[in-house]
């Protein structure tokens, strides 16, 4: 049975520390995001932590939600690419081929999780960091799209070593950089098609699970677990910064934390 790599993200455990972002940055040769990049809204973070405020001062709660690529089964970004740079692997991964990409940015326009990033500039690293680049990951030039790959180099490595040992990949053989770095183990990575894996068990047993923008029918491979709010804010003070009169459905679909 083919693998279907997936992830569970337990928002009850997430503290918003951004360790996953840093780990991803180091693992996948993502250029340094300067303050200017952030101000231009062009920072590249294959996994990003979105922060939402809830309630009104002094009863304010910060809500965090880490967002990697959802690896949709019916990814909207795929059929819009004119050159097949965005394509589907047989392991259910939604993949970006940098060499094919010509940078029309249509995939980003049609990705509703906003996890596709464009190299607006030629990536640069200070001299001191040039030696730390991961040799297993290509450095992307300017003008191409890039996105979370579920650490494909780690998947490949695990599959090859398992093959050498004449067995199948086991759960726990490897994990992605973000899951590895997560101090609270909020992010768990594994094979959804393997019933014994931790992610499959969690998905099967949890009552808190949901997918982001599930109503689009793309079937994301990332499952979120709702935050258990021991001391919830009164309903009317929630989602102040969402303008709750307009975005009632936000609560159901994004359901931050």
């Amino acid at each position: 049975m083919a693998h279907r790599w997936g992830m569970t993200i337990d928002l009850d455990l997430c503290t918003g520390c951004q360790a996953c972002v840093v780990a991803c940055q180091a693992e996948n040769n993502i250029p340094i995001n300067t303050e200017e990049n952030f101000q231009q809204r062009r920072a590249i973070e294959w996994i990003r932590v979105e922060r939402y405020w809830e309630g009104e001062f002094p009863n304010v709660k910060a809500r965090y939600i880490p967002v990697p690529c959802m690896m949709c089964e019916n990814a909207p970004c795929e059929p819009v690419c004119p050159v097949y740079a965005s394509y589907h692997t047989d392991q259910g991964l939604n993949f970006q081929v940098y060499n094919r990409c010509i940078g029309t940015r249509y995939c980003s326009v049609n990705c509703h999780w906003h996890v596709r990033f464009f190299n607006f500039w030629e990536p640069k690293w200070p001299d001191s960091l040039k030696q730390q680049l991961n040799p297993l990951v290509a450095v992307r030039s300017r003008g191409v799209m890039e996105k979370c790959s579920f650490c494909i180099q780690r998947i490949d490595h695990a599959e090859q070593s398992a093959q050498l040992q004449g067995r199948d990949v086991k759960d726990g053989d490897f994990t992605t950089a973000c899951a590895q770095a997560c101090p609270t183990r909020a992010i768990v990575f594994g094979d959804l098609n393997n019933a014994d894996s931790e992610v499959a068990k969690t998905v099967a047993s949890t009552k808190r699970g949901y997918q982001l923008l599930a109503d689009l029918g793309t079937n994301p491979a990332v499952v979120y677990l709702k935050k258990i709010d021991a001391d919830p804010l009164p309903e009317d003070s929630k989602h102040k910064y969402f303008d709750s009169s307009q975005y009632t459905r936000v609560k159901e679909t994004v359901a931050v934390g």
Binding site: P76, P79, D215, L216, G217, T218
Partner: peptide
């Protein structure tokens, strides 16, 4: 047809 959202189908 291109939208492929469940209710569109």
């Amino acid at each position: 047809w291109y939208g492929r959202m469940p209710w569109e189908i």
